[in-house]
Amino acid sequence: MNTALKYRRVAVVVFSIVIAAVVQTTLFVHLRPFDAAPALVMLVVIGLSRHLSAEFALLTGFSAGLLEDLLSQSALGLWALTLTTVAYVVVRIRDRMEEDFSLLAPFVFGLTLGAIALFAVLGTIFGEKTLADAGLVRKILVPSIYNVALAGAVLPFFTWALGVRAATNPYQT
């Protein structure tokens, strides 16, 4: 990989995670259909991890999670652990994935759902009382559905932004 592309990827990663965190915490103050919002930072981590090297993808997940921890009141490291796991799952499965949205949609849904459930369990283990939240199922399901809806735009964007479209999409004419 040439140096310019390397810097471009680092810039895309940093910029997109920061923007996702800012949008997640500001836009969804009032825009909350069914009293829930998409897990935007998680979706960005999924989008980035599909194309970055394995180690870089894991560090991206960890950093994005740490940023979420610092912007919330949850114990430092909970989101870091969750999003590192998300990145690891993407790294392990991505070779079997194609740009076909009919395959990506259930993948994004399942991963978001599993990751939020993992956070809820970890939060309870570490005393955050997340499982005491009575709207648990809705809080796991609705963001997963929103993430699938947004994935159609967000994932192709990262494919393009990271400059790897041709390499990972052999079916494109």
Binding site: A54, E55, L58, L59, G61, F62, G65, L66, D69, Q73, A75, L76, G77, L78, A80, L81, T84, T85, Y88, V91, R92, F126, G127
Partner: peptide
């Protein structure tokens, strides 16, 4: 190698959680 990095980051996360909970949200966190 990716699995090794993943395990390392998981351990680091757990250490962070423990340190932050022990500090009750103050201190470095």
């Amino acid at each position: 190698r990716p699995t090794g990095v993943f395990i390392g980051l998981v351990v680091l996360s757990l250490v962070l959680v423990t340190v932050d909970l022990r500090a009750s949200g103050v201190g470095v966190g």
